[in-house]
Design a protein around this nucleic acid. Sequence first.
DNA 1: GTTTGCGTTCGAGCGCGCTCGAAGGCCTAG
DNA 2: CTAGGCCTTCGAGCGCGCTCGAACGCAAAC
Lengths: 161, 161
Amino acid sequence: MATDELMSRALDTLGDDGRPSVEAIHGLAEPGELPASTTIAEVAELLGLSAHTLRYYERAGLVTVARDGNGHRVYDADAVRRLIFLTRMRLSGLPMRDLAHYIGLVDAGEHTVPERLSLLLAHRETIRRRIRELTLSLAAVEYKITTYGGTAGPEAVEPRS
Amino acid sequence: MATDELMSRALDTLGDDGRPSVEAIHGLAEPGELPASTTIAEVAELLGLSAHTLRYYERAGLVTVARDGNGHRVYDADAVRRLIFLTRMRLSGLPMRDLAHYIGLVDAGEHTVPERLSLLLAHRETIRRRIRELTLSLAAVEYKITTYGGTAGPEAVEPRS
DNA sequence: GTTTGCGTTCGAGCGCGCTCGAAGGCCTAG
DNA sequence: CTAGGCCTTCGAGCGCGCTCGAACGCAAAC
């Protein structure tokens, strides 16, 4: 997935403790100054997506992007912010469908806030559940590792001593 | 995915604290008595997979299953145990390819234990990383929820009071 | 003035993990 | 004897999220 690299960066901004602070998230939301960003190539670079994928997102109705005199896409700061949000949601496993629905609500105006909220609450549950699943699987793998004589900790493949 | 239901069950066997014990995993590994289980229908029911999927796994080389006089599949306890293992690994995100490779190693004999171990160690890292990613995404979603006036806790959609 | 380079649209293709349908065999019950 | 039900194999199809190629356009650089 094209988005893997983006998450890499996000993780790199944290320590390895896996306990992100609100500040870290915030920083992730606003990567420095958003240039009144322009070309598709720049945005692709910024987000770690391909230009192809950005066009695909647009086709899917997830963003609307203006054109210049040559018919080239011009991404303004709002579009970039929305793409950052979209990317983060995609990484958390929210399907394109649901994301498109959510975006539709946003564009429909303030009166959709309750529905947006309930969508987010549902997604929060999905993420929490997935974390629990993975925690369970992790324990299973660790158990198997110990039966093979591996160490329980996170050290390298060759057990020391 | 057909396997969703299996993980539902697994999670149901735990509390909601998401901190599985080795015992819970062990219980998950051995769901009561394994009948010297027989038909594909029974195994499908047991694992929460479809018969189609079980045949697919077999085609993919993940299990070998004996036949009876009519050419019908007969799953013995070993096969069922392996399927339980496979299912758990699949749920943790291990791709079929890698799983097939691992199974190949198992079938190749004891001398492949080191490679198996290193495969498991790598997979452990993958799971841990994914958990960190999701934790990060969760924080982002919670932040968004608070901006919409939702509560930070896990309560129902309608905030109380 | 042509080459380079980035952009455009459209639509096909891919990798994954199933999922399903067709066509048929064997067994048992009524 | 026939109908139902569960099994078999083979191979096609699907949903997702990209990913890519073809064919073309404009525009600044040499």
